[in-house]
């Protein structure tokens, strides 16, 4: 299994990411990808941007451990995570997760697991920007229900 992780300010190109996943070998029969975008409502209404902060070093280590966990549970031939940080505008891309597997079930499941676990485990924090107001997003019970997170108080 090979994988790569990028935490970056720059945007990413989903077509290029997808093409890069196609070289995972002849055993790959399925590629599942997920892309998350900045939407206009969260804790606040009328959100027109986000600020994303992370803990450099620890973030990459946590994502690496989540990919390893996914590879232990499902067939994962290649995994890719890109997460942006800094100031993002409405409709901007935030996060990309891609997984190559032999079969679609594993690809879907591993991709969903990495994404769900990332939300409650990787040290990123989102601040919503709406006009002149700012609000640090609260962790959601619905996200914790999908994955309890490795980060416990």
């Amino acid at each position: 299994m090979n994988y790569s992780i990028s935490v970056q300010q720059d945007d990413f190109d989903t077509a290029a990411e997808y093409q890069a996943m196609r070289d995972s070998g002849p055993g790959t029969g399925a590629i599942a990808t997920f892309t998350g975008l900045v939407r206009d409502s969260g804790d606040l209404q009328g959100v027109n941007g986000l600020f994303l902060e992370h803990y450099p070093g620890m973030t990459e280590q946590v994502i690496e451990s989540l990919i390893a966990e996914a590879a232990g549970r499902w067939d994962v031939r290649k995994a890719r995570v890109v997460h942006r940080v800094g100031e993002l505008a409405l409709c901007d891309q935030i996060v990309f997760v891609g997984v190559c597997s032999a079969h679609r079930g594993d690809a879907f499941a591993a991709c969903a697991f990495i994404m769900d676990a990332l939300k409650t485990s990787a040290p990123f924090w989102k601040k919503e920007l709406s006009g002149s107001s700012e609000h640090w997003v609260e962790q959601k019970a619905s996200d914790l229900a999908r994955h309890p997170g490795v980060l416990k108080p």
Partner: peptide, 10 residues
């Protein structure tokens, strides 16, 4: 040692 609020990425 780092102290921080619950995480909210993705």
């Amino acid at each position: 040692v780092a102290f921080f609020p619950p995480v909210t990425g993705g």
